[in-house]
């Protein structure tokens, strides 16, 4: 049954909230087991980072949407944190199966990984509330829901809030989509559009970590032979 843009947005929101049924923005007992298996227990740092990034997010949300909307920002962040922990657990299960390891100390103590994952979860929450639209991306905007003031929060807003390089954010996108099969088609498409904007533009900004990697790879010298041009 065709839906109006507002109804579609409300359905997406209900579904997102329904999928996050734990009602808690804290790590599950399964996730705590992964933390305990680490050579260096990351629990303290993870909790501290989520709290700090939460305060930053709520402040910037209020700046963008209106100071009277701080409570709304808190709700958005709460949903985002739930999704972050949910996807983290799913990713770790998947990595455990793929790599046959249980000790993810390096990954779970990696700040860029956590910031990227949290940013991606929040991007999903924000995009769900405003409809899948990109700011200035030339990809067109969905009507209805995206006319709200929250449309100012569209990608790449979250990158500036967390001072997160687009190149790092890019690294979690595919794994996020794999780890969260309940993501709606629109949301997958939105994340795919974020990938394209990063690949085409954001990853090539002056301060991108991509340039250090390119420099490093040049210093290491030619490795494998380049693939011959495809026919």
């Amino acid at each position: 049954v065709p839906q109006t843009p507002i109804r579609a947005a409300m359905t997406s929101i209900q579904q997102l909230r329904g999928d996050l049924t734990s009602g808690s923005d804290q790590p599950s007992s399964n996730l705590l087991v992964y933390y305990k298996n680490c050579t260096v227990d990351p629990s303290g740092e993870i909790k501290k980072r989520v709290e700090e990034l939460g305060e930053v997010f709520i402040q910037r949300f209020a700046q963008a949407v209106g100071q009277h909307c701080e409570g709304l920002g808190r709700k958005r962040f709460y949903l985002g944190a739930q999704l972050y922990y949910k996807v983290m657990e799913s990713m770790l299960k998947s990595e455990e199966k793929r790599l046959s390891v249980q000790n993810f100390s390096k990954l779970l103590n990696n700040a860029a990984f956590h910031t990227s994952l949290l940013a991606c979860a929040l991007e999903v929450v924000i995009a769900t509330y405003v409809g899948s639209s990109l700011k200035n991306g030339g990809f067109g905007r969905s009507s209805g829901a995206s006319d709200s003031v929250e449309s100012d929060l569209c990608f790449p807003w979250i990158l500036s809030v967390f001072q997160l390089p687009a190149f790092d954010f890019y690294k979690v996108i595919e794994s996020f989509i794999k780890a969260e099969p309940t993501l709606k088609h629109d949301m997958v498409k939105h994340l795919e559009q974020c990938e394209h904007v990063i690949m085409e533009s954001l990853a090539w900004r002056t301060d991108s970590p991509l340039f250090d990697l390119l420099k490093q790879s040049r210093e290491e010298g030619p490795g494998e032979q380049a693939e011959p041009p495809a026919t």
Partner: peptide, 21 residues
Amino acid sequence: SQDYHFGLEDHEGVSELFDCD
């Protein structure tokens, strides 16, 4: 997740992407 192009190979995941393998 239909229509999304999954490009990562079996030996590629967040552990490798964040240099944590």
